[in-house]
């Protein structure tokens, strides 16, 4: 999971257990392992929440954010991070008619989220509070074998220049 040419797939297992916790109003927040956007590359991780039924405005939504992490190439990389990040929840249907749920976002270099991290994981992330509703999750095969697949594809400005 560490080197992936800019594509990382995060397998979240036991999703029914997470949903049960959420239904019982227990907060569900998870971080992915760190992954590199290339070699050399930026170290990033994903943060996923299942918002509680009692949450204001974002109840029963999956929130998804990207965080920068301290990585082994940081001193050789341009900062702030600049590039394009495509976040997807993968449709695991059999056959050709797959409809992933996707959003594409452009890094905003003026934000703290894209500065070189000064601690293990930058507390500031960038992404979507209302990435996808739990209702929408039921409409296709987004859960298979009790597993949710989250994909993150990163194209950095470094990639574009090389």
């Amino acid at each position: 999971a560490q080197q992936c040419n800019g594509i990382y797939i995060w397998k979240i297992e036991n999703f029914s257990g997470l949903q049960k916790a959420q239904e019982e109003e227990r907060p569900v927040v998870m971080h992915s392992p760190g992954f590199y956007t290339g070699k050399p590359g930026y170290k990033l991780c994903l943060r996923l929440h299942i918002q509680l039924p009692s949450a204001q405005r974002c109840a029963n939504y999956i929130s998804l954010f990207v965080h920068t992490m301290q990585g082994e190439y940081d001193s050789h990389l341009p900062w702030p991070f600049q590039g394009t990040i495509r976040l997807s929840i993968l449709d695991q249907s059999e056959g050709p008619e797959r409809h992933n749920h996707e959003e594409v976002m452009e890094a905003k270099p003026e934000l703290l989220a894209f500065q070189r991290p000064t601690i293990h994981r930058n507390p500031k992330g960038f992404g979507y509070v209302t990435f996808m509703s739990l209702q929408h999750l039921k409409q296709r095969t987004f859960i298979k074998d009790d597993t949710l697949l989250v994909r993150c594809e990163v194209l950095t400005r470094l990639d574009l220049n090389s």
């Binding site: 965080h67 703290l112 989220a113 979507y128």
Partner: peptide
């Protein structure tokens, strides 16, 4: 309308 990405802070 498409959702808008935002900065969001999370501390353990």
């Amino acid at each position: 309308f498409p959702p808008v990405p935002t900065e969001d802070e999370y501390m353990d």
